[in-house]
Amino acid sequence: MDALLQQIFTGLVSGSFYALLALGLSVIFGMLGVVNFAHGAFYMLGAFGAVTVLDTIGVSFWLALVVVPLVLAVLGMVLERTLVRRLTSLDPLYNFLLTFGLALILQDLVRLKYGVSSQPYSRPDLLQGSFNLGLFTYPRYQVFVLVFSIVVSVAVWLVLSHTRIGMIVRASTERPELTSALGVNVGRWVTPVFGFGVALAGLAGVLAAPMRAVNSEMGGDLIIVIFAVVVIGGLGSVFGSVAAGYLIGMLTAVGNFYVPALSQSLVFILMALVLLLRPAGLFGREESMS
């Protein structure tokens, strides 16, 4: 039983990354109708951002947690203004291809600068060692990642559900035409929302730097799973993508424990099942699909 609980906890930690990434992807998709294939590349840039600001100007992990997402938000907004925007009126496939190309370019640029080997990055001193959680002890850093991601997810949810900005974003995410019809200038919010989604990916990247290999491939491997998470949660459903993120994390961890060989397929089996039985996703609404 202890072992199972521990695996579930492990799953929640890796689910933290899925949740943050899926949240950003979902908000972007909802607001812009853009399937952002470059999301994994922004995650990778977040991790490299943390490494770079530490190596060049000695910015600590804690400051990187703030600075790097901000820089990426600006980058995201610039990309939205200059590239993504031009294609939103066309078939969604165009933006899919655009962001796919962007991902490849960003990956190759990073590889050009840093090579293929991973970059070293150590845990902040404050988070070395481990916590005793009663039933088991767990590395401090990983506990921090879990708590931090929950805090961010809840904060995003509070902003979305309790503020006027959130209301507009939510309304335009779920019913864009209706929202415009009610006189809200949806277009004004598109750029900041794209930047925000990118910043979340960057934040996940900074969080990943101390515990995962920092190399140009790190995002590419992850993005496929994140797409599955978003599909399972329900495309465009903000709550769904976060919940599905943690759920998939747990599923993979428990799968790794009992049937390692199957664990990677589990996500996609679940995705296939969801698509068959509830095409709008576990938490998506049918009408928001149309």
Binding site: A3, Q6, S14, F136, R212, D221, A253, N256, F257, Q264
Partner: peptide, 12 residues
């Protein structure tokens, strides 16, 4: 799994 970024299960 390959590639894999999370080995926590095996470590615990």
């Amino acid at each position: 799994p390959f590639p894999n970024d999370n080995f926590s299960t095996f470590m615990t």
